[in-house]
Amino acid sequence: MDEQFEPKLIGILCNWCSYMAADLVGTSRIRYAPNIRIIRVMCSGRIESQLILWAFRSGADGVLIGGCNPGDCHYQEGNYKALRRVTLLKQMLPQFGIEPERLRLDWICASCAEEMRKTVEGFTAQIRNLGPLRLQTPPLLKPIKIEMEVSRHVEA
């Protein structure tokens, strides 16, 4: 039997609720699958569609967005803006050959350690079942010049 597929996951979490929950999972010493790499932003409303596509393009098999519960956003309603974007983007994802289930948005409150664990575990299992993302035509994105700049400096 083949070795079990271990997906690479990106979690983009808001500073006030879901990142706090991720911290709390840690302080509570609750274990979860190690597949997720967590990126902190101030608000889920900061997360634009291109950022999510960039994650898929860079090799993520799934992207989890975490925001505050409805009504609890630290910035009034950034989480609703995230919800609107994610809803639209999910409709577009199949055009790139990405299953919409690879993107998940969840509201996780700052004290919801167990909720956070369940979400990460559930999402990891879900993407594990889906298998690796094989992009035929990576979505066109803003060019990022990391490698260019790196080489420029190395030359300098």
Binding site: I10, I39, M42, R46, L51, W54, S58, K142, I144
Partner: peptide
Amino acid sequence: GAAQQHLFQDEQLYAEIEGALV
């Protein structure tokens, strides 16, 4: 891309995501 956020600029987040994966 005219509007940006200090400490969370596009390039910073793009680089972080890419670095986490590649």
